[in-house]
Structures are given as C-alpha cells and as structure tokens.
Amino acid sequence: MGIISSGFHGKRRTGNPALPPGQYETASFPVLTAGPAPYIANADWEFFIRTETGQRRAWSWEEFLALPQVDIQTDIHCVTSWSKLGTSWRGVSLDTLFEDVETTSEFTTAHSYGGYTTNVPLQDLLDGQAWVAWEFGGEPLERAHGGPARLLVPHLYFWKSAKWINGIELMPHDVAGFWESNGYHINGDPWREERYS
C-alpha cells in the first residue's frame, strides 16, 4: 500500500469489477487527439489491408457497408484513466476483413487519415476482438470521435482504437506507433495497467 492521504475519501467510483485497475467511470465521452481532426468524406474514404508481400485489398465506403455488419456492446478504457461502460457500436469485424488475407506476419500497424499510427499484434485484432466501427450509440460516428470510421479494439487502451482509420499494414516486427513512440506502452493492456513505456 502506498502513502495514505488522511482526509481523502474519494468517491468510490472504482469499486466496479468492470473497471480495470486505476480507472474510473465516466458518463461523458472525452475527446483526446494529438492534433487536428482530419476531414474525410465518405466518398473519399477507403479501408485497406496490405500484407508483407505487398498484396493489397481495399474497400470503398459502399463496399464496406455491404459487408456483414455487427452490433458491439463493450466497455472502453482510456489511458488517461477514464472508462466508459456499456458503449454500443456498429461495424465490421476484422475477422470479416481478414477472411481472404494470407499472411505469416504476427504484427500490424494501423494507419489513420492524418498520419496517426498505432501498432497492434494481429492476434489482438482477430477472433471477435476488433472491428472497424462507423456507428456509435446508433448514430454515425462523429468526426471528433474518428468518423467516418475508427478501429475498435476495446480490450486494449483506447489509443489503440485508431480514429479516422484508413488501413492496416501487416508488419514483420512490432514497430512502435505514434503514442508508443512518445512514452506510452507498446502493448497497452488495461487489465495489466500497461500505460507507459
């Protein structure tokens, strides 16, 4: 146990077992971005997957919407200590998008419009753990929250759920992305409190 602050009682918002260590629950949806939010019209948007051999698959917005859509209920956890429980999203599972992709790579880099990157091991993207989401709470995803679409990898800290997602590149090694190069943890598991490097 650490230093006791006598007179500090707190609000006991972290007694919830759905909250990872050090997180508190918030009802709002804070926006945290390193710079300006890019504008991407749906007509200009595409999502690609590029493999280590250079093979590239891409979906336009219309092609993407024609894929099987799923509803996702999940908790999200930001490294700045807020968690939002029971959020609802709609999008396409990465399992669907990776169906015809052949790769031996174990690592990926997610690329966003605007230049943001984040690294996620492939095993964290498959088996029903990750989606490309374009609806939040029944509404089209707002630009400030990553619209037209963002990656959703809710079992990792939310910086891994790249806003304004453009595509996923399969990587021979684990290459640190944007925040991972700026003091944040390479993995980002909230249950292990992997906040900082």
């Binding site: 006791i4 006598s6 500090f8």
Partner: peptide, 16 residues
C-alpha cells in the same frame, strides 16, 4: 504526471 491518492482503507484514485 499522474497523482495517486490513497484513502486510509486502501481506496485509490489517480488523475493526470
């Protein structure tokens, strides 16, 4: 920095 406060029963809260 992150600051962690601990109440006398071990409850903690962290803010940046």
């Amino acid at each position: 920095i992150d600051i962690r406060l601990t109440a006398d029963d071990g409850y903690t809260a962290v803010r940046s």
